[in-house]
Design a protein around this nucleic acid. Structure first.
Lengths: 334, 334
DNA sequence: GCCGCGAGATGAAACGTTTCAGAACGTGTG
DNA sequence: CACACGTTCTGAAACGTTTCATCTCGCGGC
């Protein structure tokens, strides 16, 4: 940098980082030069010297899913407060994209990575951990005690949804979602299944529908299949593995002239903002989305700081938010 | 890096960047060492040496708005194909957040910035341009020929929405959105207004409602205000400045027992996926969201490359997608 | 045997910061 | 006056890469 302030580079650095250690007149002179020249500190050089960057990576399954954008808000809030930037990476649940993003994050020497991993195990992720980069799993329980995770008790969430429908007299229930083999989805199904078995003795009344993707389109696909079931055996209620699919199912039902909730009750999962905004407001299992992001980031930063950090698997409790889409009482015998 | 391959650092660099210039046996030895040691190239050092990073910044008004996540997908697609990473920044339409993000991007020496700026002019943005960083405006027309922009003809979009409603017999129309003073919003209003004036001679029949924010909550607020208007003067149709608000209005109407589209027709803007998925599918003005992101990135990269780049203000044409929320014909005399 | 040539490898400079040992200087103390 | 001390600033090293001029070596041609 042009030392137009007539001062050494070390002093400039001090002005920027430890202003109190430099004399007042020098400081003013340097600050003056800085904005006369439009000087902007070079972050690459800082990072090189420091050995790590001032960024963290956030890797999500689907940036178009409002659940993840809300998590991202929580993450950004905490990270920005510490002067860190967030690099947001979208994988679309494709292992290749995830691998590419993780490689890029490793090269950038991020302070840590928050990730909702794809179903398949990732060598890149393992290698990150091996080289000591903090990794926190988001919306997914850590398989071992060797790392932090922030999740929601999805089994409980599934059970809440199931019990709610059972209490309202439903005895034929469909669970929508599952193909991708994500643990989150499986646990939700387990919860519903447990509830059904408790009340009915068996889970005969539970149908599982696994559309191609966990999106609105997947929900539409599921709706078509449900409508195809003969009325006598058709479920009277569905639990969806996320709200996107629930909205798809809802839309599909409207198209087919099936009334919601009268002919079919629907319960979603995540309680994204659009769930309440749907024209038939959606009953959904709420997860503390912002809080999930915030807490994950706190754990990540604690681990990055290092001082005696102990891994923590935090589990939040979901709550059921009842809205119109499930507000109907049925006679269990029909 | 540990020269366990018994070779100079320059050679390692060549193996990584110009493999053909190095002897086969040496290359194998180096590659072997690389993965024996788990070597990962340090991006900061690369960037420092190169004088710029391999990233671009994308700065959006509201990450929770699916319109922007779709744009982001388009951006990522093009950027990743060139080996560039995207840093996604959310401003919530707050100038301070935007300023902080732009400062961070400048320090990171991004190759360029894609931005949908807040309403107020930003000194940080001006300074970026002054120091030669390419900036492309997204979803907003450049005020002068000095920079690239990728936008949609919002005046036309507004007119399409207005004409559609007028053709269906609506004569009292409300426009929802506006407080933030965003040019995009203003142009949409202008379009609606022009259509109304053409048909009715004046825009007396047009009411403007400006909620606090351009979100679902803002739509709910607008709905409450509309319902408060005495039935004789109440609009029979609304055009919303974006789909988020349209969904809010829809939800508010359902709550108040107002039928859509029978009592109130609704037209949204952006045509986000949720618009079609709403239980009363939303008529909306479609913008080519992915294409907007892609094209903006192409322009940015062309400018960054430099070779005789000429600034370009690209304008896409919007199209009206008619769905149920406006499918009703009214007698203009009532 | 000498020269030139090309392929392949080397070594050092440069990028812009931070850090730290120490220089310079003024001031108070014995 | 000599000395210690504190404050303020300097200078140089170090971070890990890329780049480029240069060196080495083997080989073919004369």
């Amino acid at each position: 940098m042009a030392e137009r302030a007539g001062v050494s580079v070390g002093t400039v650095s001090n002005v920027l980082n430890r202003p109190d250690t430099v004399g007042e007149s020098t400081r003013d002179r340097v600050l003056g030069a800085i904005d006369a020249l439009g000087f902007v500190r070079n972050e690459s050089a800082r990072q090189l010297r420091a050995g790590r960057s001032r960024t963290i990576g956030l890797v999500v399954l689907d940036i178009a899913n409002p659940f993840f954008t809300d998590v991202a808000r929580g993450v950004e809030e905490v990270a920005n407060a510490q002067g860190l930037s967030v690099i947001l990476c979208n994988t679309d649940d494709e292992p290749d994209k995830q691998a590419a993003h993780l490689d890029a994050l490793a090269e950038q020497r991020v302070q840590g990575v928050l990730i909702t991993p794809t179903a398949e195990p990732s060598p890149q992720l393992a290698s990150l951990r091996r080289r000591g980069v903090p990794v926190v799993l988001v919306d997914r329980r850590a398989p071992d005690a060797g790392q932090c995770s922030v999740a929601v008790d999805d089994q409980l969430g599934g059970r809440l949804a199931g019990e709610h429908l059972l209490e309202h007299g439903h005895r034929r229930i469909a669970f929508v979602g599952g193909v991708s083999g994500l643990p989150q989805v499986q646990e939700r199904l387990d919860g519903v299944s447990a509830a059904v078995r408790t009340v009915c003795g068996s889970d005969q009344g539970l149908t599982v529908i696994a559309p191609e993707s966990l999106t609105v389109a997947g929900g539409l696909e599921a709706a078509a299949r449900i409508v195809g079931i003969p009325a006598a055996r058709r479920p009277t209620a569905v639990v969806c593995a996320n709200d996107l699919m629930a909205l798809g199912v809802l839309q599909g039902m409207v198209r087919h002239g099936v009334r919601v909730p009268d002919d079919l009750a629907i319960v979603g999962y995540d309680d994204i903002d659009f769930a309440a905004a749907a024209a038939v407001p959606l009953t959904s299992v709420r997860k503390p989305r912002l809080e999930l992001g915030r807490r994950a980031t706190e754990l990540l930063l604690a681990e990055a700081r290092g001082d005696g950090h102990r891994h923590e698997q935090q589990v939040f409790g979901p709550t059921l938010v009842v809205r119109e889409s499930s507000m109907v009482r049925r006679d269990p015998t029909t």
